[in-house]
């Protein structure tokens, strides 16, 4: 097994003590990501049913975190019916591990994305009706994130901007 192999373990509130020096960097999204996992937003998201994982390397260092949650949105009226969707509320890699390791095969960002897509399938299989879409929010200027998501078959939903941050939404049509 490669020394770059990540492990994934479900995050709990108690793990926050180990995140005192965890930082996704000084960009706006990096700071938001750090605050999300170290503050209360991660707990609210878990309360809403999200799973959150901490990823560690073989030296037991925390490399990053990822999350996956259900949402029920409604189709526009007059339909108004519910659509069950999966989302990645937030994911982040500690700045020391961004772009690491240099080789693509074991790149942490890819291991994490692969894991989250796997978990989305596990989640979908538990539903009465399979879930078709996995969504995520991305800052329009977050080039590394957009590039990463595109590599994992996410496509930008045109004409959608959310919140004051003007975030974009990307969609991935889950495999059958």
């Amino acid at each position: 097994m490669s020394k770059h192999q990540l492990s994934a373990d479900l995050f709990t509130e108690a793990d926050q003590q180990q995140l005192a020096s965890f930082s996704c960097g000084d960009t706006v999204v990096g700071r938001a990501c750090t605050e999300w996992i170290r503050g209360s937003d991660v707990l609210d998201s878990m309360q809403r049913g999200s799973g959150v994982w901490l990823y560690r390397n073989s030296d037991d260092e925390i490399v990053g975190f990822g999350s996956l949650g259900p949402i029920r949105w409604r189709w526009p009226l007059p339909d108004g019916d519910y659509a069950k969707l999966a989302i990645i509320p937030m994911l982040g890699i500690d700045e020391r591990f961004q772009g690491q390791p240099p080789g693509k095969e074991w790149r942490y960002s890819r291991q994490i994305m692969n894991h989250l897509i796997y978990e989305a399938h596990v989640f979908s299989a538990m539903q009465k009706k399979p879930v078709e879409w996995l969504l995520l929010l991305v800052h329009p200027e977050n080039k590394p994130a957009i590039k990463l998501y595109e590599e994992f078959d996410f496509v930008m939903i045109p004409d959608v901007r959310r919140g004051a941050a003007n975030s974009c939404v990307m969609k991935h049509r889950l495999a059958e």
Partner: peptide
């Protein structure tokens, strides 16, 4: 603002916009 939009994105019962 970014964190607000993440929280908003996870809200159930929201009616999708037409482009969504």
């Amino acid at each position: 603002e970014y964190l607000d939009s993440v929280a908003e994105f996870q809200q159930d019962d929201r009616i999708m916009t037409e482009p969504e």
